[in-house]
Amino acid sequence: MGEFKVNKTYAEINEKIKSGKAVVVTAEEIIGIVKENGPVEAAAQVDVVTTGTFAPMCSSGAFLNIGQSTPSVRTTKTWFNDVPAYSGVAAVDSFLGATEVSINDPLNKIHPGEFNYGGAHVLQDLVSGKKVEVRAESYGTDCYPNRKIEKTMTLADMPQAIMCNPRNGYQNYNCAINRTDKTKYTYMGTLKPNMANANYCSAGQLSPLFNDPYLKTIGIGTRIFLGGTQGYVSWSGTQHKSDVQRGLNGVPLTPAGTLFVMGNLKEMSPEWLVAQSIRGYGVSLSMGLGIPIPILNEEMAKFTAVADEDLFTQVVDYGHDYPQAISKSYGQISYAELKSGTIMIQGQEIPTVPLSSMIKARKIAMLLKESIKNGSFLLGEPQHIF
């Protein structure tokens, strides 16, 4: 007899998906089901729980192949609409990072900079079907004699375009405040002086890795919703941490797990891939990410039933402490409190500002639910767990 009262396999769930018999609910819907029926009965009833998040994910980008020229070229420097891409790959491949900015951008020379155009904007333009100006240089070789190319391209003109994001889907993240008497411009947005606002970035109970706190069903080969199409988890993300402080429900109380994800940029949508100009900080890219969680047993049913009031994060000072690498929490706050619109820190009521979209997170979970129910999205069994 197994460890659990309910035991399912990926193959069994996929067969139910193919036959149209799978029971699929969102991470918000499972909360009530488990509360009313308990985790064992919920696990017997439900096969898949869908999650979703839409938020800035700086560590994103794409490998772009611009096709060969006549005569042939091995590009060593490449620009897309004057945004540099890394060309130390081979031939006509380059990697365009979402946070790279235009060569003409004044950056923070006039503080705070506006960062109006960068790699994320190029990627959004490409998935929107717009033309981009491609410019590349080379030192020339016997086999690749061409030294310079210029052309206008759309995404459809590129032989390959692969979204490759080294760090997406943070499992938890800080709530940012500013305890100094000056406005601070950060990747967590503009923080007003004297704790006049508190910014946070998570979909809470809908967020993918909150619903599988130990990543028991998420690993290499997990099929996901990425940027409007089907993508995959290819490794754990950079800055991934598993050995962290956790609550009694197993959910990390600080930044923890991250995912390295990939997908076909040519199939993505501008609705789920949106460039962000973050004042005084730089360029970022908001990505739509959703992960289906298979309910293999009652433990997974219990994990996915986590609610905002049971999810906590730390309040961190981004005005002084964070830039000085001082690790200090000014309070542990639930996502229910954050989503209420105000939190109380050191006797001061502070308005909260979400950087992630709950509306879009909820829509991703619903789109993923419908795709699984109609049989167009099967579960990918992970080949390696982190």
Rank of each mutant, 00 (worst) to 15 (best):
R135V: 15
I31C: 03
V101F: 10
A43N: 05
V73L: 15
E12R: 07
E137T: 15
K35W: 05
V132I: 15
Q45K: 15
N81V: 05
I33K: 02
T78D: 00
A27Y: 01
N104M: 08
N37M: 14
W79A: 01
S59R: 05
D105C: 11
V25H: 04
P84S: 11
I30G: 02
S128T: 14
C58T: 15
G88L: 00
T76F: 03
K5P: 00
V127C: 08
R74D: 11
G140Q: 05
Q68M: 12
N7K: 14
Y139H: 10
P56N: 10
Q68S: 08
D125G: 05
A90T: 13
V24E: 04
Q124C: 05
W79F: 15
S59F: 10
D93M: 13
F4R: 03
K131L: 07
V83Q: 05
L107I: 11
D47V: 00
E28N: 14
S128D: 10
S87I: 05
T26M: 06
E133N: 14
K131G: 01
A22G: 07
N116V: 12
V92R: 08
C58K: 12
C58N: 15
E29M: 08
I31R: 13
V24A: 05
G97M: 12
E15K: 14
T70M: 10
V49N: 01
V6F: 04
Q45H: 07
K131N: 12
L96H: 06
A43L: 02
I110D: 13
S60N: 05
S72I: 09
L64M: 07
F54N: 01
G129H: 09
Y117V: 11
L107H: 10
I13G: 02
S60Q: 03
I33L: 11
S128K: 09
S59D: 12
V24P: 01
A85L: 04
N14W: 04
E15A: 15
F54V: 07
D47C: 04
V40S: 05
N108T: 10
I31S: 00
P112T: 10
R135W: 08
P71C: 12
T75L: 14
Q45Y: 07
A22P: 04
V132R: 00
D125K: 14
G32T: 09
G52I: 04
G38S: 06
P106S: 09
S102N: 15
S87C: 13
E12F: 00
Y86M: 09
E29S: 08
T76R: 07
V24M: 06
L64V: 08
P39C: 07
H111P: 11
L64I: 15
P39S: 10
Y10V: 08
E3V: 12
S69I: 03
L126K: 06
V23E: 06
F115M: 09
D47H: 06
G140D: 06
K18T: 13
G113D: 07
L96R: 04
A98Q: 03
T75E: 08
G52R: 06
G113W: 05
N37Q: 14
G140S: 08
S87G: 10
A43S: 11
I31N: 03
N116P: 00
P84A: 11
Y117D: 09
I17C: 06
A85W: 00
F95K: 03
R74S: 15
P71W: 11
V48W: 02
P112Q: 09
D105G: 03
T53I: 15
V89H: 06
P112D: 10
T70W: 11
A55S: 13
T51E: 09
R135H: 10
H121E: 12
A120Y: 05
